[in-house]
Computed example of a mutant assay.
Amino acid sequence: MKLVYRVTPKQRLIIVEHALKQMQAFAQHRSGDREAGGVLLGRHLLDSRDVVVDEVSTPQSSDRRSRYGFFRSSKHELLARQRWLEENSTSAYLGLWHTHPEPDPTPSGVDLRDWQKAVAGDTYEGDRLFFPIVGTDCIRIWTLSRRGTYRELKLENKNAKI
């Protein structure tokens, strides 16, 4: 199973099952669960404009996690760089993901500032980064471009079960 989101009329974001399961494993279903997160890793397909998330980094011991907060440590950047080297420069940094302890997640002001900082300061291919938030009932994804265009992506395969 994979999730497919429409980015533009000619571009899709595809999250493969492995990456989806990695994120869902940290959904905050119980009251003691802490927020979790990491980076999205994948590729820009050469024969189309589609972007594929193949895997994600998962919480590291150096992260700061609480019920309503997550601070991603620099270890995630090191993991992304290591994967890029191992994959002969074909594994790309695509964005940031994290969890929220709510059924239908929405970004906080802290999230929006974090995303703006990533788009302005991080090194990445393409003109945008992606920002999934994993809730207890669904995953919602936003994108922010270098030009400052911000919007939520719509799930293309609406019958997909997560």
Rank of each mutant, 00 (worst) to 15 (best):
L85P: 00
I139Q: 01
L20R: 14
F70D: 05
T99L: 08
E86Y: 06
G135H: 14
R43C: 05
V110W: 10
Q60W: 02
L40Y: 13
P132L: 07
V51K: 03
L144I: 09
R34T: 10
R151M: 02
L78N: 13
F26S: 05
G148P: 08
R67P: 00
D50M: 09
D33E: 06
H29E: 10
E35L: 03
L3D: 05
M1K: 08
V56H: 03
W97T: 09
A160M: 10
R81W: 06
Y93H: 09
P9Q: 09
A92S: 15
S61N: 11
R83H: 12
H29V: 09
K154G: 03
E55C: 15
D114G: 02
D33C: 03
A160I: 13
Y68F: 12
D127P: 04
G109I: 01
C138V: 15
A92P: 00
I139E: 01
Q116R: 12
K21A: 11
M1T: 13
N159F: 09
S31W: 08
A36Y: 06
Y124G: 07
E125S: 09
D54S: 15
A120D: 15
R83A: 15
A25F: 15
I139L: 02
I133K: 01
G42D: 05
Q11L: 03
S74H: 11
E156W: 06
P105Q: 11
R147H: 11
R49C: 04
L129A: 13
Y5A: 03
R151A: 05
V53W: 02
R83E: 15
F131D: 02
K21E: 13
H100A: 13
L78P: 00
V53R: 04
N157W: 06
S57H: 03
E102F: 10
S48Q: 05
H29R: 09
S89N: 11
L144E: 04
F26N: 00
H18N: 12
R64Q: 13
T136V: 12
D122T: 05
G135E: 11
D47I: 11
F130C: 01
W115C: 02
S48H: 09
Y150G: 00
V56Q: 04
D114R: 03
T143V: 08
I15C: 04
Y124Q: 06
H98E: 05
P101V: 13
W84K: 15
E87C: 08
G109T: 07
W142I: 10
L40K: 08
G121S: 13
R43K: 14
R72T: 07
F26K: 02
P9L: 04
P107F: 13
K10C: 06
F130R: 00
F130V: 01
G37I: 08
L13R: 02
P132T: 05
Y5E: 10
G109W: 04
H44L: 13
D137S: 15
H29C: 01
P105G: 06
L3Q: 12
G69A: 14
L45R: 14
G135V: 14
D63A: 02
E102N: 10
D104G: 02
T99I: 07
S57I: 06
T136P: 04
N159Y: 05
F71C: 02
Q82S: 09
H100V: 14
Y68C: 03
R43D: 06
V16N: 08
I141K: 00
Y68H: 13
A80V: 12
R128D: 00
D114P: 00
P59D: 05
R113D: 04
